[in-house]
């Protein structure tokens, strides 16, 4: 290989390593800090030692974190809320996208434009009206009829099932699928729902993975403002609300880092499970994170 090409390649790799470090360092800092006592953590934070497992390393912070908050309950709540939201969201948003792309009905363009317009409406602007609505909505559940959705799982799930981004992602993906496949299945005798279930969805693995990961991150990481408004009981709290347990009385940074490390694990597992399809989808659709 000529010297100038070798140099170019080396520079490219250096750049990639540098970018990778930017993303990895906060995680390394979090994990390493979770193993250190607070005094050492604070003194190491101004040097490179913050990123190295040196000094007094122990799992004490993890044990104290579990004592301070019901972490497993919070993780269970978050995973349950996020999981159910993802399943319903993928189903409903893909169905909506299917109707926008493959069916033709009056007002289709206008409705799609309205959905896209909701992109620019921040959740904070609708939080209070939404609270007023859910506060007065009745619910029939296992415990009988309730007059409000407050303090429940479903209040953290239902308002987030449909979202413009997921619909948009499916619409873009469906538009690129060969039209002949849909026509062939119609001639073969498939109903529209069969076309959706037996032809379109089996071919939509990459976009399902992408939408699922984005939705997971959106739900799991942002469960803060809305749960503060609608959940008072500990039994329905998600992980992000659990963080406030560590800021009461004496703040222990090591425990906070331990808590954050623990609650990051589900995100990593979920991403690792779907990363192959996620990367394939980003490569094919040009979606950027």
């Amino acid at each position: 290989m000529p010297a100038h090409k070798l140099l170019g390649m080396a520079l490219r790799y250096l750049l990639l390593i540098w970018i990778a470090m930017i993303f990895i360092f906060p995680i390394v800092f979090m994990v390493i800090s979770s193993l250190k006592p607070d005094l050492q953590l604070l003194s190491d934070s101004s040097s490179l030692r913050a990123f190295l497992p040196v000094g007094d390393i122990s799992p004490t912070n993890y044990l104290s974190a579990f004592d301070r908050a019901p972490i497993l309950l919070f993780i269970f709540n978050s995973v349950l809320i996020t999981g159910i939201t993802i399943v319903f969201s993928l189903f409903l948003c893909s169905l909506a996208a299917f109707s926008f792309v493959f069916l033709s009905w009056r007002g289709q363009g206008v409705i799609f434009a309205i959905i896209l317009a909701t992109f620019i409406v921040p959740f904070e602007t609708i939080a209070v009206p939404l609270l007023l609505i859910v506060n007065n909505l009745p619910w029939i559940g296992l415990e009988g009829i309730k007059n409000s959705w407050i303090n429940s799982y479903h209040v953290q799930i239902i308002p987030f099932i449909a979202d413009a981004l997921t619909i948009f992602l499916f619409v873009q993906y469906f538009r690129d699928l060969p039209k002949d496949l849909i026509e062939a299945s119609r001639i073969d005798g498939a109903t529209w729902f069969q076309v959706y279930r037996r032809v379109i969805m089996p071919l939509s693995g990459p976009i399902i993975a992408t939408a699922a990961i984005l939705k997971f991150l959106m739900m799991y990481n942002n469960q803060l403002l809305w749960p503060i408004m609608v959940v008072q009981e500990e039994s329905y709290r998600p992980v992000m609300l659990g963080l406030q347990y560590f800021f009461q009385l004496n703040t222990q940074w090591g425990e906070i880092m331990a808590y954050l490390t623990i609650i990051t694990i589900p995100v990593l597992i979920f991403y690792l499970l779907l990363q192959k399809a996620f990367i394939a989808s980003i490569a094919s659709t040009g979606i950027k994170g």
Binding site: D180, L181, A184, I187, V199, L203
Partner: peptide, 20 residues
Amino acid sequence: LEPSKRKIAMVFQSYALYPH
């Protein structure tokens, strides 16, 4: 009538085979 009710079959230029 719907395509499936016409008792016809069609072969497409792209073959339109279901890849999965």
